[in-house]
Nucleic acid binder design. Structure first.
Lengths: 248, 248
DNA sequence: CCAAGATGGTTCACTATTTGAACCGGTGTT
DNA sequence: AACACCGGTTCAAATAGTGAACCATCTTGG
């Protein structure tokens, strides 16, 4: 792996649940030597992408990341524009709703609004979702150009649960259904017990750039509620698309 | 410079005004060879810190940055908590207000609320402010421990305008004044024609972690308005401090 | 209370990764 | 058609990265 890749993999060790990590631990997880890890951390710290807590000497993500993210968001305000709509959809459906952006062949979870219910689906910001197996992914594929779908189906499809669709023909059928009704539906394709309804968000050129999905415990969803969530999801997704492209 | 440093310097070429840059241009500005720049960009893209617009082939900051920044913000919600207060202060004073975080010996501008007036001060997110010469910096030093101030005064002080305080004794006096009344005042110390009032924001341990500043055209400020802005700035800063430390 | 096993941090000979001049093929300008 | 850009690629040369072994400290538990 390139040196840069190693440095970035250090950044990627930090999660919502573990925002501060010590040197040895960090090196171990990233599969690097302690000395290497430290040198990389110092380089990152010099550019403020990493900070070191002076007391505990533990490392955490730096202010420079906030700065870069704000520069990006100012030009491509996906999360900023989508967040209120996501929130609204979560309140309306009473379920957890998450927003993902397509990047490098997968969907990157950028924002989550959790359901207020005790029995809810928890999704973390930062999770990477595959295109098959999640409602978000199916919705994304359904909105993509055919050649992109074909290319994706070339590669083998990993199974995440016993419900994951791994046969290309199943997947094509699910994609066609999603394309025809505007939203996708997936039950336990990625995680046991989780039911999801997904809808694609389109950019100015009509190509999908991300998705949103309503995630519920399977026990709470029947066909009727799924249809209701689907309509609401489509409405929310197209509202975000409209805002992105400058309309409304 | 380390390879990592070079990679990060590529990221730092992007600004609010120029969120997309081509390969040759990017390499030139970062002082790198085209081939080197491209390899680094690819490494960054593999981790989604950089994206490439497929049509124009130009590069821009990637979604991974949003993700990392969100992980950071969840743990250290400086901007998130401060933004509404900053906005309020901007509306109240009618002037541009900016929020900075201390990192690696300087203040990093993380958020700006622009004045609604036509004749206003423009500040960009991402600007790096020195500790001397800006109201923010003076306010920060005034809230810092004496030894930190001493260490900073050891190094030579760069002049940015003919008004910049470069003599340590002047600076000490300004710091003492700021410490006694809670806010700092600086006229044209960093940029001609700009008057600023700064106040420090304190973390849970009582140490300053950042600042906010009200920036106006010098023509619009007399001693009375400055005093008014100062009081408002102090109030806003302490409200942010309180929110950060979990109070209120 | 001290030994064992953590931790963060440093050094330096070895070597693998990075580098950049020269090279494509393509696009727009003159 | 000639030119000057552009993004992208190649490969020998050289630089930058690596990691085992080394401290000094801190924590733990018998």
């Amino acid at each position: 792996m390139s040196t840069v890749g190693k440095a970035v993999s250090l950044l990627e060790q930090f999660t919502l649940h573990e925002p501060e990590i010590g040197l040895s631990d960090l090196a171990r997880r990233a599969g690097l030597d302690k000395a290497t890890a430290r040198r990389l951390l110092m380089a990152l710290a010099a550019h403020r992408l990493i900070e070191q807590e002076p007391r505990s000497r533990r490392y955490r993500l730096g202010a420079g990341l906030s700065r870069l993210a704000r520069i990006r968001d100012a030009h491509f305000p996906f999360v900023r524009l989508a967040a209120p709509v996501i929130r609204e959809l979560s309140l309306e459906t009473g379920e957890t709703v998450h927003l993902s952006e397509f990047s490098a062949g997968a969907l990157l979870t950028l924002h989550v609004e959790l359901s207020a219910k005790a029995n809810r689906v928890n999704v973390d910001v930062g999770q990477v979702l595959p295109l098959h197996g999640t409602a978000s992914g199916i919705a994304f594929l359904a909105a993509s150009r055919l050649e992109a779908v074909g290319a994706y189906l070339e590669k083998p499809l990993q199974a995440f649960t016993s419900f994951t669709m791994t046969r290309p023909d199943e997947l094509v059928k699910a994609i066609a259904l999603a394309a025809s009704r505007g939203y996708s539906r997936s039950s336990q394709g990625y995680e046991e017990g989780v039911h999801s309804i997904g809808a694609a968000i389109l950019g100015a050129d009509g190509q999908p750039i991300g998705t949103l999905a309503v995630a519920s415990p399977v026990s709470r969803v029947d066909d009727a509620t799924a249809a209701g969530q689907g309509e609401a999801a489509v409405k929310a997704a197209s509202m975000i698309s409209a805002r992105l492209t400058g309309e409304a």
